[in-house]
Computed example of a mutant assay.
Amino acid sequence: MEVAILGATGLVGQIFVRLLENHPWFKIERLVASERSKGKKYREIAEWVSDDTGDIEVESLEDFLKNPDVDLVFSALPSSIAGKVEEKLAEKIPVFSNASSHRYEDDVPILVPEVNADQLKLIEFQQEQRGWEGFIVTNPNCSTAILMLSLKVLSEFGLKKVNVATMQAISGAGFKGLSALQIFDNVIPYIEKEEWKIENESRKILGFDFEMSAITTRVPVSHGHTEAVFVELSEDISVEELRKAFDSFDPLKKLKLPSYAKPIVYKEIPQPKLHRKLGNGMTVTVGRLEKIGKKKFKYVTLGHNLVRGAAGGSILNAELSYRLGVIK
C-alpha cells in the first residue's frame, strides 16, 4: 500500500519515516511538510534518511491536498492545523493520526491495539455518520499510550483508582519545545493540557469510568517517558499474581503484525537510558512493583515517547486495521 506522511520533517514525522523504511505492507510514496520545505530533497531537511527516502522530493500540504493519491495517510501534523486537513482526507482515504484534534469525538477511536481493538467498530459508524469512504483513527497522547498497557492488565482485577506522576522526556516537546537553558538542572512540573489528556483519554480507551488524577513533569531526559503509578483495585491479589499477569499479557502475538513486540517486559528498576529501545521502542517496561495496602499497588512504567507513544503506535494501529480487513 502506498502511504503519505504529513508533517514528515518534524520530530515525529521523521520517526514515521524511519519506522516505515522497508515495511512489508506500507511503502512511503509521498512526504508532505510546510511550504518552506517544498521542492527540497528529504535528505536536505531530515536528520535521518536512507538512500531510498533521501531522494524523495518534499511537497507542500497545499499541493498534496489537491491530489492525495495514496492508499492511506499517517498524520504528524500539529493539532492546530490537523483537524480540517484530516477530515478532508478522510472523505476518501484512511487517516492514522498522531494529533489530538479528533481524539475526543464519539465516533473516532483512540486506539491502542493491545487494549481496545474492539473500538475499530466505531469506524463503520463514523463513515455512516459523516458520509466518508475513508476514516480517522487516532493514537493517544504519548504518556497515555505508555500507561495504557499496564492499566489494561490491571483492569482485569477491577480498576478503581489511579494516581500517576510522569517524568517526560524533552523530545516530547518537539524540536522547538524547550531550550537547553530551561531544562538543564531543572524539572518543570507542568505540561499544558497533558494532565487532562491522560485522565480523559485513559477512560475512553478502557471504556469505563474510574477515579484518576495525573501530575505531568518535564525532565532532562532525551527520549523515554517514565511514570510512577499508584492504583487501587477491586480484587485483593498478590504481587506474584499481578507480576504474572504483566508477564503473560500478549494479545497481538498471533496476528504477526510487522511492528509487533511483546508489549510489557518486567525490569526491577526501569530506566529510560537502558530500556526505552526494547522491542524497537514498542515495548513498555514495568518495574518497582509493590503492594502498599489491601488492594493497592505502586509501580513504575516507561516507554519510548516517539515510538510507542507516537509514530510506532500509529503504525501499529494501521497494521491492525489492515490485518483485520478494516483497510481494504
Rank of each mutant, 00 (worst) to 15 (best):
F210R: 02
L89V: 08
V187R: 11
L302C: 07
R103L: 13
N200L: 07
E29M: 13
S202Y: 00
V58T: 02
T144F: 02
I264C: 06
I188Q: 06
K84R: 13
R43G: 03
I123L: 15
E290M: 13
S60K: 05
K296S: 09
P24A: 01
K204G: 02
F184T: 15
F297N: 04
I191F: 03
L316M: 14
G293I: 15
M282R: 11
G303N: 04
L147V: 01
S97R: 09
L257N: 05
W48A: 13
G13H: 04
S100H: 07
E86K: 07
K161H: 11
F96D: 00
I188K: 07
V229K: 01
A99N: 05
S222H: 11
K244N: 14
L242H: 01
S321Q: 02
K193T: 15
F125P: 05
E128N: 12
A82M: 12
E290P: 08
L151G: 00
K204S: 05
F26R: 06
E156F: 07
Y299L: 12
F208T: 02
A145C: 04
L316F: 04
Q168W: 00
T216R: 03
K204I: 08
M212E: 03
K256P: 10
G287H: 03
K152M: 05
G172I: 09
R308K: 15
G13Q: 04
V164M: 12
D71W: 01
G54H: 04
W25K: 10
V286E: 01
E124H: 07
R203L: 06
E290W: 10
D69R: 12
L31E: 02
Y266N: 05
G131W: 03
F125Y: 08
S150I: 01
L320D: 01
E62H: 02
A145I: 05
N22S: 13
M282E: 03
V164G: 06
S259C: 11
L31F: 00
E211G: 06
V162L: 07
L178M: 11
A82K: 09
A261R: 12
A228K: 15
L274T: 14
E290N: 12
S101C: 09
I170M: 10
E128K: 15
I183A: 01
T301Q: 03
L72V: 05
Y190H: 11
K92N: 14
T53V: 15
V70N: 00
R103W: 05
E29C: 14
E21T: 11
E124V: 10
T283D: 05
D236M: 13
D236I: 14
A261I: 11
